[in-house]
Design a binder for these strands. Structure first.
Length: 290
DNA sequence: GTTGAGCGTT
């Protein structure tokens, strides 16, 4: 049983797929199998790999034969530290044929699709089976930083264009990847212009279907990949009330009473205004004292 | 030897 994922999906008709996220890039299906097989009959373990490098992409799919066993594996293994990383185990939602999976279970194909190929045809209204749609908006950011650097960034006038949409890559960029049939559907389903952003999406958090109520997973979001300098400035402005904290001001005040007006003219006006404003208290207190 | 917020192979 060491050839998981080598020969395609064996028999996925009545299996229940779990998505295992955050595994180490060196973790293999053979590593995961004994771990998951303790909780039930695992019929398949598949770790998608990068097509260029052949490396793991950091997640895996474990298919169970029975739903209760899969659920037990979710309960027991979600949050477990495997090979130094805290894995996340949850029911797969999208599946190789996205519509045919529900609650981890790969549903029987509704009908033999004509052409016997796996529905490359566009699905007109994809996944509105339940009200969890909003999670899907976050979905296509699978590429890692290395992937992004593999492709040369547009230069010259295209650089502005590229930078302006640094949040979501252009369709051309995604097309370059040639990920396959699913990306075609998904890329089309989320409209090309990124101004989708539904205004009233409810207050529910779109991510992480909260299989386990506890949120012990540290949100290690990297602030260094903030979208744009403007956004960063906005964020800093919104959450820097401490830069005006009285203690910090007293630290940086340093009145230097020998300052003359000629010195002020040499200063930039903004600096002048700032210093003046800062020194207001000092001046008033000084006048009050003397 | 590295990466990391993410849903799938013949």
């Amino acid at each position: 049983m060491s050839h998981f994922g080598r020969a395609g999906p064996p028999d996925i008709r009545d299996t229940y797929s779990l998505l295992v996220l955050n595994i180490t890039f060196r973790t293999t299906a053979d590593d995961l199998f004994p771990l998951f097989d303790k909780y039930g009959k695992v019929v398949d373990v598949f770790i998608p790999r990068d097509r260029r490098t052949g490396d793991s992409r950091g997640f895996a799919f474990v298919r169970y034969k029975y739903a209760d066993e899969a659920q037990k594996a979710v309960d027991k293994l979600d949050g477990r530290v495997v090979d130094g990383r805290e894995i996340m185990v949850q029911f797969a939602k999208y599946g190789p044929d996205a519509e045919r999976i529900h609650k981890g279970r790969i549903l029987e194909p509704v009908e033999k699709l004509k052409g016997s190929s796996r529905s490359r045809s566009p699905r007109p209204s994809s996944r509105h089976r339940d009200d969890h749609r909003d999670r899907d908006y976050r979905r296509r950011n699978r590429s890692r930083s290395r992937d992004r650097s593999d492709y040369e960034r547009p230069r010259g006038r295209d650089r502005d264009r590229y930078r302006s949409r640094s949040r979501s890559r252009s369709p051309d960029y995604r097309k370059e990847r040639k990920r396959g049939r699913y990306d075609d559907d998904k890329g089309r389903s989320r409209s090309p212009n990124r101004s989708v952003s539904p205004p009233a999406r409810g207050s529910a958090s779109p991510r992480r279907s909260s299989v386990s109520p506890r949120r012990s997973l540290s949100p290690r979001r990297t602030p260094s990949r903030s979208r744009s300098p403007v956004a960063r400035v906005e964020k800093e402005r919104s959450l820097t009330p401490k830069s005006v904290s009285p203690r910090g001001r007293s630290e940086s005040r340093s009145p230097s009473p020998q300052r003359s007006d000629a010195d002020f003219f040499k200063m930039d006006y903004r600096v002048y205004a700032a210093v003046n404003a800062v020194d207001e208290n000092w001046c008033s207190s000084r006048l009050a004292v003397g």
